[in-house]
Computed example of a mutant assay.
Amino acid sequence: MIKAPTSKQLFLDQLRAGLKGLPRTVIDETVADYEAHFEAGRAAGRSEADITTGLGDPTRLARELRAEAGVRRWEDERSLSNALGAILGIMGLAALDLLVVLPVLLTVGSCVFAFIIAGAIICLVGSIMLPFALIDLNPLPGADWLQGILISLGLACGGASVVAFCTLLTIGAVNLLTGYGRAHYRLIAPSHSA
């Protein structure tokens, strides 16, 4: 078990170092909140060592706060960078589960990426075939112009559907991962209450 620092300043310095990379306002607000914990503890007659012990390891606390911030950004605005931030934050929090979560995440991510590429290629092929079918330069021997149009539209729409489904699957996977992180965070959080 990692020993908690015994002084307020050491605790706050380690917390600030662990939060590095987050927006400055978030870091300042978080450190101010924990300074308030120390003030309330001192007002209740507790020593700095007792307060820091109650708060726990500031490095682990910073990882939890970073993961929570990443999840909040993902929930507020669904974007690729926010999804990656949430995933990395949760992976940092769940360092012990890394051997289980990472292979599954890489496998699912690789499969979804392959399907997105395949869908985009199929959509592109259908889109390229459509103008040829419209001017009756059908690249498919033995097919009339209507069949060529329907086949090219089918390919374009089918490819677009695969890409859309994979996008929804990716959003669902990120939501599952953030749910996992929230459950993990809730299991750890009670040990840090002062």
Rank of each mutant, 00 (worst) to 15 (best):
residue 2 I to G: 01
residue 2 I to P: 02
residue 4 A to T: 12
residue 4 A to H: 00
residue 6 T to Y: 00
residue 6 T to G: 03
residue 6 T to Q: 09
residue 7 S to N: 08
residue 8 K to P: 05
residue 10 L to C: 06
residue 10 L to Q: 15
residue 12 L to R: 07
residue 12 L to M: 08
residue 13 D to M: 05
residue 16 R to W: 02
residue 16 R to K: 13
residue 18 G to Y: 09
residue 18 G to L: 04
residue 18 G to K: 12
residue 24 R to E: 13
residue 31 V to W: 09
residue 33 D to M: 14
residue 33 D to V: 04
residue 33 D to G: 10
residue 34 Y to L: 10
residue 35 E to T: 13
residue 38 F to W: 11
residue 40 A to E: 07
residue 40 A to R: 14
residue 47 S to L: 04
residue 48 E to D: 15
residue 51 I to E: 13
residue 54 G to K: 03
residue 55 L to D: 04
residue 55 L to W: 06
residue 56 G to L: 11
residue 57 D to G: 04
residue 59 T to G: 08
residue 60 R to A: 05
residue 60 R to V: 02
residue 62 A to P: 06
residue 62 A to T: 03
residue 63 R to P: 01
residue 65 L to Q: 05
residue 68 E to P: 00
residue 68 E to I: 01
residue 69 A to Y: 15
residue 69 A to F: 15
residue 70 G to Y: 07
residue 71 V to I: 15
residue 72 R to A: 09
residue 73 R to I: 00
residue 74 W to Q: 02
residue 74 W to V: 02
residue 76 D to P: 00
residue 79 S to T: 14
residue 80 L to F: 06
residue 80 L to H: 04
residue 81 S to N: 10
residue 82 N to H: 13
residue 85 G to D: 14
residue 87 I to G: 07
residue 91 M to K: 10
residue 97 D to A: 04
residue 100 V to G: 08
residue 100 V to M: 07
residue 101 V to A: 11
residue 103 P to W: 03
residue 107 T to G: 08
residue 107 T to C: 01
residue 109 G to Q: 02
residue 109 G to F: 01
residue 113 F to P: 02
residue 115 F to Y: 13
residue 115 F to E: 07
residue 117 I to E: 09
residue 118 A to T: 11
residue 118 A to I: 11
residue 119 G to K: 01
residue 119 G to H: 04
residue 120 A to H: 06
residue 120 A to P: 00
residue 122 I to N: 07
residue 125 V to H: 09
residue 125 V to M: 10
residue 126 G to M: 13
residue 126 G to C: 08
residue 126 G to Q: 11
residue 128 I to T: 14
residue 129 M to G: 12
residue 129 M to Q: 14
residue 132 F to W: 13
residue 134 L to R: 12
residue 135 I to N: 08
residue 135 I to F: 08
residue 135 I to K: 11
residue 136 D to C: 03
residue 137 L to C: 03
residue 141 P to M: 09
residue 142 G to L: 06
residue 143 A to Q: 13
residue 143 A to G: 00
residue 145 W to N: 07
residue 146 L to K: 06
residue 152 S to G: 09
residue 154 G to M: 11
residue 154 G to N: 12
residue 156 A to P: 08
residue 156 A to V: 05
residue 157 C to P: 00
residue 160 A to W: 08
residue 161 S to D: 04
residue 165 F to Y: 10
residue 170 T to F: 09
residue 171 I to V: 15
residue 174 V to L: 06
residue 175 N to Y: 08
residue 181 G to W: 05
residue 182 R to N: 11
residue 182 R to C: 01
residue 184 H to N: 10
residue 184 H to E: 10
residue 185 Y to E: 12
residue 187 L to A: 14
residue 191 S to L: 06
residue 191 S to T: 12
residue 193 S to G: 10
